[in-house]
Nucleic acid binder design. Sequence first.
DNA 1: TTCGAATGTAGGCGGTGCCAACAATGCTGT
DNA 2: ACAGCATTGTTGGCACCGCCTACATTCGAA
Lengths: 203, 203
Amino acid sequence: MPASRPTPESRPYHHGDLRSTLLAGAERTLREKGVGALSLRELAREAGVSHAAPGRHFKDKQALLNALALVGYDRLGQALEGADDPALPLEKRLTALARAYLAFSIDNAELLELMYARKHEPDASEQLAAAVDRTVGSLERVIADAQERGEIIAGDPQHLTLVTGATLQGIASFAAGGMLAPEAALDGTEEFVHLLLHGLKPR
Amino acid sequence: MPASRPTPESRPYHHGDLRSTLLAGAERTLREKGVGALSLRELAREAGVSHAAPGRHFKDKQALLNALALVGYDRLGQALEGADDPALPLEKRLTALARAYLAFSIDNAELLELMYARKHEPDASEQLAAAVDRTVGSLERVIADAQERGEIIAGDPQHLTLVTGATLQGIASFAAGGMLAPEAALDGTEEFVHLLLHGLKPR
DNA sequence: TTCGAATGTAGGCGGTGCCAACAATGCTGT
DNA sequence: ACAGCATTGTTGGCACCGCCTACATTCGAA
């Protein structure tokens, strides 16, 4: 059995899985110390490679951040799709989805911020765009379904999805910013959805 | 009349108003190149002082960012208070406020991000907290007023304010992230507010 | 088996934030 | 008026960063 991490001798010249190791380390650092503490050189050190090695897998620091965002979208997409139960009645269905989103956004606040960072405007890797589509798709499906059943007012489904998503994202943002305790955000999910569906005005 | 910016000779030893100059320059850079391009040394260069001079006014880069956020809150607070007309009926009043918020968030996207950055948890200067209170106060007042008149359902006004603010912030966030064109966000204000007040369900 | 492509290494460049020692200036009390 | 102190600015240095280039090793396909 080889020794643990610091193995300067027996370590093979090629790491074998540097890219994944870097991404994993980056996500860990991101979670623990925030995006500001992310350093390619430090990641290289943790992975036991030279400071320039990461450059072989990510042309840029931004490229690594983009890859990280992609991982985030994947995970969020899974979470949302896993939480969606088309058999549920509208309000319950939406609540479940909302709870999943808020849970993710609380557990992965820094990662989420990365995903929303509008740095990919110049190139905007299509992979990323596709990931976004998949994510909002989960929500849009619920809205569209409900609309067909007449459970939701008419109108461009994308428009309605936007407002719904905005409310969720806003709450997530407040929770991340400390304006709202994370538990309060999660516990309030049901109420938030209710308000969204029924409005603020008395009926 | 002394020469313009690069005046290495006649410039007095003391700048006279470095703090303001730095803040102004920082905001300019923030708007034009983003927070990532902010550098104390560069700011010092632009102000025509040595690279360590900013340290006399901001102990930290973070301290400058906090001061910048404070400026932002001030300006946002003014904008909101200026846009609020208590004489208006609820929906119009709320729409005006929402439009002001969205306009600010579009014109000052980077600054707004700074304001929401949860970096001030450790110390959380009370000045900043007060500024936040003032800002949300504008919204809370509208909600509370409407509640008293029975135009809005009962419930903790802070709770309702939260949801309202979240929706706005979410839309602003989408606009900043490029998911929604700025004009679309502004033009849709009326509809957003209407949806918020009347809900997604048919009446 | 050989040779090019992938991957990792070593070192250097300009830039950054922060710190300490020092210099010029402004202000305040006598 | 001016001595002395606090404020503000300067110089230089440290450690770190991202990125680049030249070089080394290994892998894989022709």
